[in-house]
Simulated scan of single mutants.
Amino acid sequence: MTSTTKALVLGAICALGLTACGSSSPGPASQEPATAVDVGAASAVTPPDAATLAAARKEGSLLLYTNADNQLMKPVTAAFEAKYPGIRLRVLDMNDTQIFQRYATETATGTRSADVVMTTDAVGMLDFVKKGNVADYTDPNVANLPAYARLAPGVVAMSEDPVVAAFNTALVPEDRQPKDMASLARFARSAKGKVATTDIGNPTEFGAVAGYLGVHGEEGWKNIEALGPASGVESGTGNLMQKLAQGQYEATYFVGGTVRALITGDAAKVLNYSYLTDGTPLVPRAVAVTKGAKSPAAARVFVNFVLSVEGQEAACKGGFTPYRAGVKCAYGLPAIQQAVGAGNVIVGGYPADLSEQQPTIVARWKKAFGR
């Protein structure tokens, strides 16, 4: 979620006369997991080696390009700089396409560019790897991570963010909210243009659709193609959630899970979210050290941090979804599994043929949605 997205969502909520803009009062959210969920035992600490840490301190800073806005990154930045004083983390948030285009332009002209990239654009990241832009670096934490987190050479998931359904509760009370994609399709047909999602060009939407179809195949396409004619389509999450909060939409689906951090307090008087029981794909948020890094040691220290239990707990505070064992987080993977059942969570990775699948998936989606 970029800064613009967050501003649009909060702006819409504020415009409704709520105090969510400044209130921290608690409020319910659909399927909000219990904080007592068993997260398992943390694995052994695997910090960077002394030589890497000394070199990172000498470099003094690193530059991160990411599609996560600064508000989401703020707890991560604060925790990292507190753990490693003297190493400054500079964060530039932009959309996924801009990340790769900017890096290409800057490195071609010898301009300072990103030391680390963090993105949810799976196809874009695979192309980035193919072009030789990712450093050959395997973090010590990787040995403690599940196999699905190892996305590509030099690329690992720092979070596995779900896509959710979100509802305007003034228009659709919780007892009327669809629980799965099939019932959502039936609801959409009766709601007459009041259900929406984002365009397939949005990497989160594509990741969600590809993940859902990877499990449900043609049966999944039946639900998506039933939703298509009855769904509105927005370019991004900001517009989608703004119109939901204002009542132009009653329900939305395949929404990036970082919105969960916004649907709290007084905002939850207007909006709630749920994990659809047959369609909760997790979209991996990939992180990698760049081949052209000017601060390669600091970059490795940062990646080590975000993959650690401590770093993942900091990421949770921003709304990201940690997945490794031993991380206490109400938004974490164990909590999602508790909410809908482990068998109903589609854990995302980078299938070998994902780039080849993309044109077919995009074309069929566009036909279904009349785009």
Rank of each mutant, 00 (worst) to 15 (best):
V76H: 05
N304Q: 06
L145D: 11
Y148F: 12
T204H: 05
D199Y: 10
F100C: 00
N144Y: 02
L10C: 09
E310I: 09
A210G: 01
A182K: 14
L276G: 07
M94D: 03
K74L: 13
R285W: 09
G60D: 08
A55W: 05
E310A: 15
Q338Y: 09
T237V: 13
K317R: 12
S308A: 10
R176Q: 15
E32D: 13
G201E: 10
V283S: 07
P281F: 14
T264R: 10
A12V: 13
A54L: 15
V9Q: 09
E356G: 01
T290H: 03
N344H: 11
V301H: 06
D121W: 06
A12W: 03
G124E: 09
Q337A: 05
Y103R: 04
R371W: 02
E32N: 11
A208V: 07
S113W: 00
E313I: 00
T169A: 10
L227V: 12
V142D: 09
A50N: 14
K179P: 00
V9S: 13
Q248G: 14
A188L: 10
D199R: 03
N133Q: 14
P85K: 11
N141L: 00
P229K: 06
M1D: 12
T204Y: 15
T321N: 05
Y65E: 10
Q101T: 08
D115Y: 02
A82R: 12
S159T: 15
N144I: 02
A297S: 13
N304L: 02
A330N: 05
W365V: 11
G370H: 05
Y350A: 03
V76S: 06
F305C: 01
A20G: 15
T204E: 04
V117I: 13
E205P: 01
A56E: 09
V327Q: 05
Q246H: 08
L213W: 03
A299T: 07
A185C: 14
K243N: 08
A352M: 02
A55Y: 05
I99E: 02
E59M: 11
G292N: 14
A315T: 06
L89G: 03
Q242G: 12
P85N: 03
L262T: 15
G124K: 06
F302V: 00
V347N: 01
L151E: 04
D353R: 10
E219R: 06
F254W: 12
D139A: 14
G232C: 04
C14L: 11
K269T: 13
G211N: 02
A165G: 15
G201I: 00
L126G: 00
T52C: 03
D266F: 01
S3E: 11
N239Y: 14
A182M: 10
V209W: 04
C21V: 14
T321P: 02
T321L: 08
L62I: 09
T52Q: 10
T252E: 11
T52R: 04
G256R: 15
R102D: 10
Y350E: 04
A152C: 00
K74F: 06
F167P: 10
A165H: 09
A339P: 00
E174S: 15
A149M: 05
A79D: 04
Q246K: 11
E106C: 04
Y137N: 07
M94Q: 12
G332N: 09
S30C: 13
P140C: 09
T169I: 15
A335E: 06
E234S: 07
L53D: 12
A288Y: 01
S159H: 14
P203N: 10
V76I: 15
P281R: 08
A55N: 14
K291D: 07
A330I: 13
T138I: 06
G17C: 08
